[in-house]
Design a protein around this nucleic acid. Sequence first.
DNA 1: TGATGATTCATACATCGTAAGTATAGACTG
DNA 2: CAGTCTATACTTACGATGTATGAATCATCA
Lengths: 216, 216
Amino acid sequence: MTANRTRGQKAGLTREAILEGAVRLVDRDGLAKLSMRRLGAEVDVEAMTLYHYFAGKDALLDGLVEHVFARADFSLAGGRSWQDGLRDYARSLRATLLEHPGLVPLVVSRPAVTEQSLRIMEHGLAELHAAGFGLRAALDLVYSLNEFVLGHLVSASNPAVPDTASVQEGHLTGIDPGEYPLISEAIRADRDREADTRFDVALEAIFRGFGDLRRT
Amino acid sequence: MTANRTRGQKAGLTREAILEGAVRLVDRDGLAKLSMRRLGAEVDVEAMTLYHYFAGKDALLDGLVEHVFARADFSLAGGRSWQDGLRDYARSLRATLLEHPGLVPLVVSRPAVTEQSLRIMEHGLAELHAAGFGLRAALDLVYSLNEFVLGHLVSASNPAVPDTASVQEGHLTGIDPGEYPLISEAIRADRDREADTRFDVALEAIFRGFGDLRRT
DNA sequence: TGATGATTCATACATCGTAAGTATAGACTG
DNA sequence: CAGTCTATACTTACGATGTATGAATCATCA
């Protein structure tokens, strides 16, 4: 009866194309709206077809993180000071995830022992070691840096703490200056600073703090 | 036909009891297994009954976070140095969430502008201001500290980075010493340290780094 | 041509959050 | 006592989800 329209092979559908569709969908509608059926519609195919390219939704999500990270070079380019190397790394990691805020919950909820991340870590340890850090201190620093960046991102990706960005033109969203005078005042003083600046200030503080651990 | 067993009133079911059941369920089976039906079973009631106490699942999850935090005193007890105050705060925040690791994804995915968190922040700003920090620097420090703790927790709550805890008795899970000699070495050197120690070391580094920002 | 393997789809199932409607028990009124 | 009200609890049902299963179609090569 019902003529089955288009089965069998179709125009070249690839893992890449699916992942790009997923990125588009997440960027547009958020992670919650990423269902197999929706993603199928996005790349013009039935949901079950996706299972030919990915073992399951988890595999797809893993691929998604990988895909986004693959296009971002987090190299700890050597040759300069360890601060410069780590700063570039942290900034580019942050920038990449800020471009796709919907992916932040994914990244933090997924084990990140990929080939690439391990290589970066190894490289980072080598540089820090050469810069005079003991291996243990170097490991502490690399861990802490990653943890700070991730924490910064999860805090930034939901309207959690009253952020500078959410305070436009002086209307402090929901913070009563009478009840919380210092918060209001601090946020007001912070109004003209970019979020990037806050991030950088914290970075430098972390570097200063860990700098004392060299030759341990 | 089928005799309807027990409708109408029952033993005193309360919001508190439901939330405690939810905590139990999450601690036992993880956040993913927290469904209204399961939670209903846990507190011996049908799923829909829960909607009498909570507007929806989101409200329940909000309540869950609140409930756990309510039992943890994150006071920035004054009178001592600002380092002591912030350290106690960070440690107890971490300790609380380590007791309920299943809640970590919830905490980081939920705006945390509760009454309590704002009060703590206000209090923290006051202390830091008194200790010689400019308001802006104080805000940076409080933010960064929170972000670091959260990042530390999300990293610890999944088997993401090869953690010291996962390296038992010298068998480095999945890290090839040939390919990543420094990581293996660093982890081996780290074997005998508690995770608490790593956290504390990072805390002190952050304090040192931000300490230079006083009188700004 | 016919066979083979890659690709796509239709159907079905269990589970989820929850809207809508119904039944019961206790408190209050007369 | 009977009658009513309300808080509490349950039943049923709907749409959305991830995915197991198996059939249908296409490209390719013998």
